[in-house]
């Protein structure tokens, strides 16, 4: 009665069709691309203000619409093939609240550091360091999920994260562009990985007809 293992199998089932990866990939690609365009538009241009607002709208839109669109896709693709399951609603116990606070602090520190770095005069030097750190953090996140749910392709994404972090760091494009390119690259990798997973899933799973069964 390994409940942890049963739950991990459920997570793996949820990730199997690649739909979540495609959604997350679109979000990252859009954020990275918009951020890069904002950078090239110049700080005092009208495009800068429009696109800065657009970035926020895009993120909220993808988060809101993506959930509904993803659910609609799963209804058409996944549920008739490998079935439906729903996770329990998140419980706000002591451990979860602490983890959330830790995540907020970590995010705040990371955001603050990026903000400070982006205003420093020696952008080239810092621009090497930031994408490499992001690549390592991304790789750790992918590897953690991969080992937990035993989804092999996430290890490739972990390796890609480190690789692209090193490449962008070596290019020395500065902090803002470095971070933008990193998001863009990871986003595209997620979309590709998700599409490959979706094609493999569709090839290996036919819709199951349960009509006439004594359910």
């Amino acid at each position: 009665m390994d409940t942890e293992n049963t739950l991990n199998r459920a997570y793996a089932h949820w990730l199997k069709d690649g739909i979540f990866e495609i959604g997350l990939g679109i979000l990252f690609t859009g954020v990275g691309a918009l951020r890069a365009i904002i950078h090239f538009a110049g700080a005092k241009s009208a495009a800068y203000y429009w696109l800065s607002g657009g970035l926020l709208v895009f993120m909220i839109g993808v988060a809101w619409g993506g959930k509904r669109f993803g659910e609609a896709l799963k209804e058409r693709i996944t549920y008739p093939r490998t079935g439906y399951m729903a996770f329990k609603p998140r419980t706000y116990n002591y451990k979860n609240i602490l983890a959330f606070i830790a995540l907020l602090i970590f995010g705040g520190i990371l955001g603050g550091m990026l903000g400070i770095f982006s205003t420093q005069p020696n952008q080239q030097k810092i621009g090497v360091f930031v994408p490499i750190v992001m690549g390592i953090v991304g790789a750790l996140a992918f590897a953690y999920v991969a080992q937990r749910v035993e989804v092999k392709r996430l290890y490739y994404l972990a390796a890609f994260s480190i690789g692209i972090g090193l490449v962008i760091g070596a290019l020395g494009v500065g902090v803002v562009l470095g971070v933008s390119f990193f998001y863009l690259s990871i986003g595209l990798a997620l979309v590709v990985s998700g599409c490959v997973a979706l094609v493999q899933y569709l090839r290996s799973h036919e819709p199951v007809d349960l009509n006439g069964e004594s359910q």
Binding site: M1, T3, T6, L7, R9, A10, H13, Y79, P80, T82, G83, Y84, M85, A86, F87, K88, P89, V208, L210, E213, S214, Q215
Partner: peptide
Amino acid sequence: LSILYVLESADFLYLLRETGLGKGNLS
């Protein structure tokens, strides 16, 4: 029960795949 214990809910097809039982047996 072990599967349903960790989830909010699951459908017949999901349970069929996870348990490895036949349709009639599971039913």
